[in-house]
Design a protein around this nucleic acid. Structure first.
Lengths: 98, 98
DNA sequence: CGGCATCCTTCCGGATACTG
DNA sequence: CAGTATCCGGAAGGATGCCG
């Protein structure tokens, strides 16, 4: 979603930039976004074939929202890491061990 | 998350207002939020026992973000419904059948 | 009241192989 | 290139029963 924020992307571009995603999941995700009217799929029947994915106007409004969430996650990543360490340390207390 | 937006809530309050959630999932969710430092769990050892959940300052910032997402979903709910109907109708085209 | 432990089913999503 | 089809393991999460 957020990846499509600035302009259309080809299938293979997306696949490469979302490191670790399987073709299956990428297609499934794109299809559901298309079904929901958030992404527009454009097929150019050439050889080799070319398929572009772009946000629809409504898709752009969601993308903005998602972008905010991503920024939040980046900004608080370290806070969460610290919280988890404290919690997992065994709620024993916030004073360091003797 | 968003439910805690305005003030602490008791376990049973949450359970009732999130209709359909199992005690297991509610606890699991609250625990992970607590672990991440987003929610504060306060136990009042009385009889019957009482446990309150409240957002931490960082939790409030996420809650705001999530609130935006919820508003987005409500506003575009019908748009998505329409898109799906069109899509499932069999991509045949946007002109009505003869 | 506010949980936790356990069992059991569901289904998400990865790996792999094949196609227009 | 841009997928689809199939198989399959593991994790998510509901149901149930018990406890401080």
């Amino acid at each position: 979603m957020a990846l499509l924020g600035d302009g259309p992307r080809r299938y293979s571009e997306l696949r490469r930039s979302i490191e670790g995603i399987s073709p299956r999941m990428l297609t499934l995700t794109l299809r559901s976004l298309e079904r929901d009217g958030l992404v527009l799929r454009t097929v150019t029947p050439s050889s080799p074939p070319r398929v572009d994915y772009a946000l629809t106007p409504v898709g752009r409004t969601l993308s903005a929202e998602v972008g905010g969430l991503i920024r939040w996650a980046e900004e608080h990543r370290s806070y969460i890491g610290r919280s988890r360490r404290v919690y997992d340390d065994g709620g024993a207390g916030d004073l360091p061990p003797v």
